[in-house]
């Protein structure tokens, strides 16, 4: 009993800080999501609205479209980063001269502030003095203008996210692959398994916890992307890159529609938690299987 108290004591500061800084604001957001509260409204007052904000939400096709785009963006970004990161990590397993330099340069984007990443990519892609439109036009005769073409803008944000976050995946994969015991693989090769079989039946299952964790972390962050895209396209052209983070930002700040914006946030949080919980359960299952086998 006494030792349990020590355990709680050690946990307490974390719980208190997150309770005050995380749970309290969450409860407040939950509270105002049941109110109509808009600085610009005729009454200007906070008025009880029941579940009206949520009712409005499920019929708001612009918002649901934005949610769909965000999910697509997250899916594509996380998958590409995972595959790329895994491939790159496996090339880094053996030593070759200059490996450290390459790896360090590869990790550079990781430390750049999202808002600066957005600025960097804007400078790269802005028509007029951006590098990309100029040389794409000159060398390949491609009309590249992310202010104008929705698909180009979408894939540019995707490329930006991959550029920014693949290093993170590479590093976690590399850490996982390095820490993995080598004997089973060598044994399997001796037993006549080919490269693909080793990868499919040994490496990937053993890497599963790392993979799931990485997906988990990347998914959380990709779903709430704001800064980079806001700097790059502002959410345009049209609605093409108006991901939920930006959408909510627009509702909460310029429109000051606090109640509705809170409802939106909660819905996004709900989706994220459900997705995360499923992954979490999957991770626990993988863990149980491994420990039991």
């Amino acid at each position: 009993m006494d030792s349990n108290r020590t355990g709680w004591g050690l946990l307490a500061p974390t719980l208190i800080i997150l309770g005050v800084m995380g749970l309290l604001p969450f409860l407040y957001v939950l509270y105002i999501s049941f109110f109509d509260w808009n600085v610009f409204s005729a009454s200007g007052q906070m008025e009880w609205a029941g579940v009206n904000n949520f009712r409005r939400l499920v019929f708001d096709s612009a918002f649901l479209g934005s949610l769909g785009r965000t999910l697509l963006f997250t899916l594509l970004a996380v998958t590409s980063e995972l595959i790329l990161g895994f491939l790159l990590a496996s090339t880094l397993l053996r030593d070759f001269p200059g490996k450290i330099v390459f790896r360090t340069i590869h990790a550079l984007p990781l430390v750049i502030a999202p808002i600066a990443v957005g600025a960097t990519w804007r400078l790269l892609t802005i028509p007029g003095f951006g590098l990309a439109p100029y040389y794409l036009d000159r060398w390949f005769d491609i009309d590249y203008n992310i202010g104008r073409y929705a698909e180009q803008a979408f894939f540019t944000t995707l490329a930006m996210d991959i550029w920014h976050w693949t290093p993170f995946v590479t590093l976690t994969m590399l850490a996982g692959l390095t820490a993995m015991p080598k004997e089973p693989q060598e044994q399997a090769r001796v037993d006549g398994a080919n490269r693909w079989q080793v990868l499919r039946f040994l490496t990937i299952p053993m890497m599963m916890p790392v993979i799931v964790t990485t997906v988990f972390i990347r998914m959380m962050d990709a779903l709430r992307i704001v800064d980079e895209v806001f700097m790059l396209t502002g959410g345009g052209p049209g609605n093409a890159t108006r991901y939920v983070g930006i959408y909510i930002w627009r509702v909460v700040f310029p429109q000051t529609d606090y109640g509705y914006g809170s409802a939106m946030s909660l819905l996004v949080l709900y989706f994220t938690i459900v997705l995360a919980w499923l992954l979490f359960v999957a991770l626990a299952q993988v863990g149980n299987q491994q420990s039991s086998s």
Partner: peptide, 12 residues
Amino acid sequence: IIWVAIHLLWMR
């Protein structure tokens, strides 16, 4: 989780 999902779908 189920409670929220059902309510949202119901409203829609």
